[in-house]
Design a protein around this nucleic acid. Structure first.
Lengths: 327, 327
DNA sequence: ATGAAAGCGCTAACAG
DNA sequence: CTGTTAGCGCTTTCAT
């Protein structure tokens, strides 16, 4: 449908090669013919066919990103950072979503690879040896954010376990007698990749030591109700350590409707420090997870990998406890 | 690098044409050879090169989406809906962001078109005849959401003007003597497409009628402070009508820090009904703008257009006043 | 039921 | 400085 180099070559009475040289200004070419070609190309509204170019060059100047959701602020922030970082390098980002559907995730990755994206950034919901093999078989540079797949797939994130331990220590230091770990993702299918949340649980366990009991974990969808009934029980000053700010927000909302408020009636701590916390009060105590830095680093590493440099299999960014008003 | 139809043809001792027929099961082919081909293709891990396929078919089964931000919940919800809707039709979505950079927006659109996406959904920040011509010149089916470009580019959205008028009427009916319209986007460059917000302003004007004065518009970045100083002035019960929930949230936060609360000290109304409002209290009065429906409709129309059907140039979805606690 | 040949639009190696 | 040739991997007539 569009104008091709052939058309221009015919009109300018030169070969296609010359047209290419003029348009991509490479190689020796006389200023006159070049100008003539460039001018007619513009007049005709010539646009290179990127599929054809990609086919022959084996590069597309696109990097693919696969995540499950953008409504989740964590991913929204991540995607923004990736986009910015990639564009400064002249690359475009192709973002695709699958909503925690594991087969769809694999399909999307495949399709991106079949389209020859030059690199891939994922925050996968799949896990296991099968998925690991799959990723390795792609021979496309890729970086995983957050949910580690294996030691063979480069990973960027924060030390979730240590962060969770410190957070729990902080809660304990604040004098809470009972600490409950709230982590709905752990209640989801065991087939999914929950590395991040599992690490947080480990950190919680580390800090609790001998005080840990299974009863201190809420992993159901109805965590609001469960939290409420735990508070009803009595049994000492209680704090909820939530494996995600959003769960903390839900709990605060739920308990508030029942007349209970933090930090007066209970303590609560989140995880992620998503941007919308600034609109809430009381300010939630949480852990800043450096999404932007993680995303930026992921892009850096991806480009290193794309350019053939050796990269670390694990890269950790800093996290930081955020002192709020809910402990 | 990968396995091609040529490799399979050689191995199976057939022609490439036969391989294609087997793999895409089309045309007549004996079950035996077909099975043999399919099996070896699987064994070798054959994957079709989508660039090559796209090049020859002129279709890519991708639709491109260009918006400026995903951190904005409005867009996050929109993108989710588009993704879901497109995937049920077997299409992938390529989301790209430009952060209100007008040149970058044009570049991204161009690039998507040069990659032969089969359709395009935009919420543009460009406007004017030049941009209109540009879009028309693409000869790629496209739909615009929210910011109308012209009568020649299919548009989906809600009747912003009418919604804003009703909202203002509602505020006036609630007994507020002074109503201020808060719309920071109107303070940005006049070069940008602010159709949505301009319509909301018109609606506000419609409702205010002779009571309207220019002094009732806040369009600066420091709307928090301005709102505060307006309240200080005194001068009757005051309400802020914000052209976006986020501005309302900011104002509430700002005023709260100064000891003023809605609806006791002032009234406030938002626009969009973004999902995170449910975490706030008091519940913001606002206007539900049917993002999901709008997005879904946009995809429907896009497919109609892609399939050659005639489509309406303007499509409006319902909106709905949401009765909150801030008026 | 299968194959040969041409072509999508671009690039690159090699001549001249 | 310019042109010729071959090819990326797939699809699509048109033959056989």
């Amino acid at each position: 449908m569009g104008v091709t180099t052939n058309d221009i070559a015919r009109i300018c009475q030169v070969s296609r090669t010359t047209v290419i040289r003029a348009l991509n200004n490479q190689g020796r070419i006389s200023k006159e013919t070049k100008d003539r070609i460039v001018r007619t190309a513009e007049e005709l509204g010539y646009r290179p066919d990127l599929l054809a170019r990609g086919l022959v060059k084996g590069k597309t100047m696109y990097i693919g990103v696969v995540v499950f959701d953008v409504k989740n602020q964590y991913f929204a922030q991540m995607l923004s950072a990736i986009e910015t970082e990639a564009q400064t390098r002249g690359y475009c980002v192709n973002i695709t979503l699958h909503g925690k559907n594991r087969e769809k995730e694999v399909d999307l990755i495949r399709k991106l690879v079949d389209y020859h994206v030059d690199g891939l950034i994922l925050s996968p919901v799949n896990k296991g040896e099968h998925f690991n093999k799959f990723l390795k078989s792609l021979d496309t540079p890729l970086i995983v954010i957050g949910n580690k797949v294996s030691d063979e797939i480069p990973f960027v994130g924060i030390d979730e376990r240590r962060a969770a331990r410190e957070a729990t220590d902080k809660i304990l230091d604040s004098g809470y007698e009972r600490v409950v770990f709230v982590c709905p993702p752990l209640g989801e299918s065991k087939e999914g990749n929950n590395y991040t949340h599992e690490q947080r649980l480990e950190g919680f366990r580390d800090a609790m030591g001998s005080r840990f009991t299974e009863g201190q974990i809420i992993s159901s969808e109805s965590y609001g109700e469960e939290a409420a009934s735990i508070l009803e029980e009595g049994g000492g000053r209680t704090a909820f350590f939530c494996s995600g700010d959003i769960y903390a927000m839900d709990i605060m909302k739920y308990l508030k409707a029942r007349g209970k408020r933090a930090p007066k009636d209970y303590g609560i701590m989140g995880f992620d420090d998503i941007e919308l916390l600034e609109y809430l009060s009381p300010r939630l105590s949480t852990i800043y997870n450096s999404v932007e830095e993680v995303a930026k680093r992921a892009v850096e590493l991806l480009f290193d990998e794309m350019e053939g440099r050796e990269i670390a299999m694990e890269t950790y960014e800093r996290y930081r406890l955020v002192q709020g008003e809910t402990l």
